[in-house]
Amino acid sequence: MDELEADAPGATDEGLDKDNLLLEDIGSPDHTFEKNARKFTRADIERQKQEEIANARVRQVDSQGRAYGTGKRKCSIARVWIEPGEGKFLINDNRFDVYFPMLDQRAALLHPLTETKTLGLLDVNCTVKGGGVSGQIGAIRLGMSRALQNWAPDQFRPPLKEAGFLTRDSRIVERKKPGKAKARKSFQWVKR
């Protein structure tokens, strides 16, 4: 019988001492009080994170006096720099009215500048790649909004946030499924 007890795991004097210490820690009322005192609700944690983010919002400008923002939409990625100037708007080293010839496309691009009342006061220079026309417009608009927010967070963030320009549009094309013509469209049904 003594041989079996000696072979059992944790039956040594050191193992028994450790087990006793653990049981004492778990059973002590001080331990449970500390555990309950450290509990925060999910709302408290989220509120604390938002306050830290809000306090971290400071003007972010590089050594050349430019603010930077990255925008993504569908498969397009835009890198946008904003600096004080006379209102030049360059996309991939082309004027924006040459790069996007349609009026509604230009209006969508200029919307963040009109919302913050900075149209004609800032020079915008951006490079965009990937995707199609609407994806590139959305990417440039998001990048420009983020750059404006970095330029003057206290002044430009509220109107941009209210207009919804700081939210990344995460919608992408749904994948094609087997047995379907497209993602959801079925093949034409014929009786015979």
Rank of each mutant, 00 (worst) to 15 (best):
R171N: 09
D62K: 12
K161A: 14
E115A: 13
G120T: 03
L109A: 05
Q105W: 13
P159A: 11
R66K: 14
L166T: 04
T167S: 09
R171P: 00
A56E: 14
I140S: 06
P159K: 07
I82R: 01
L122F: 15
V124I: 15
G120Y: 07
Y68S: 09
A78L: 09
R59I: 13
G87K: 06
K88Q: 11
R106I: 15
K117I: 01
S63R: 12
E174K: 14
S134N: 10
K117F: 05
A163N: 05
A67T: 02
R171E: 05
Q155K: 13
R95T: 15
D97F: 12
E115I: 13
A56W: 12
R106P: 04
Y68I: 13
N94S: 14
A139D: 01
G179V: 02
P112T: 09
G164R: 05
L113H: 05
N94E: 15
G143R: 00
K88P: 03
D104E: 13
S170I: 06
Q64I: 07
R141S: 15
Q105K: 05
K72F: 04
G138V: 08
V80Y: 01
P178I: 02
L119G: 02
G143E: 00
E115F: 02
S63V: 10
L110N: 01
A107E: 14
V133Q: 10
F96V: 15
N150K: 04
T116F: 04
R66T: 06
G85A: 10
G164L: 09
R79V: 10
R146A: 05
L148V: 11
V58Q: 08
V173Y: 08
N150E: 08
I82Q: 01
K177M: 07
F100Q: 00
S63D: 11
V128F: 14
D97N: 14
R175Y: 06
L166C: 03
G135Q: 04
Q136P: 14
A139H: 05
K161R: 11
K176L: 07
S134G: 04
K117R: 11
Q136M: 06
A152S: 14
P101A: 11
A147F: 08
F165D: 00
Q136N: 06
K72E: 05
R79I: 11
A147M: 06
R141F: 00
V61T: 13
P159E: 08
K88E: 13
P101W: 01
P158S: 10
Q149H: 07
L109P: 08
A139K: 03
V58G: 05
D169N: 14
V133Y: 05
K88A: 11
K177G: 07
I82N: 01
T116H: 02
G179A: 09
E162N: 09
G120M: 04
G69W: 01
L109M: 06
I172N: 13
T114R: 14
V61Y: 07
R168I: 03
S170L: 11
R95E: 13
A107Y: 04
R59N: 05
D93K: 11
N92R: 02
K177C: 06
V173T: 08
G120P: 09
L148P: 02
T70K: 14
F96Y: 15
P178H: 09
N150D: 11
N92Q: 03
Y68D: 00
Q149M: 13
I137P: 00
A147Y: 04
G87M: 04
D93P: 00
A56I: 11
K180V: 07
A78H: 11
I137L: 08
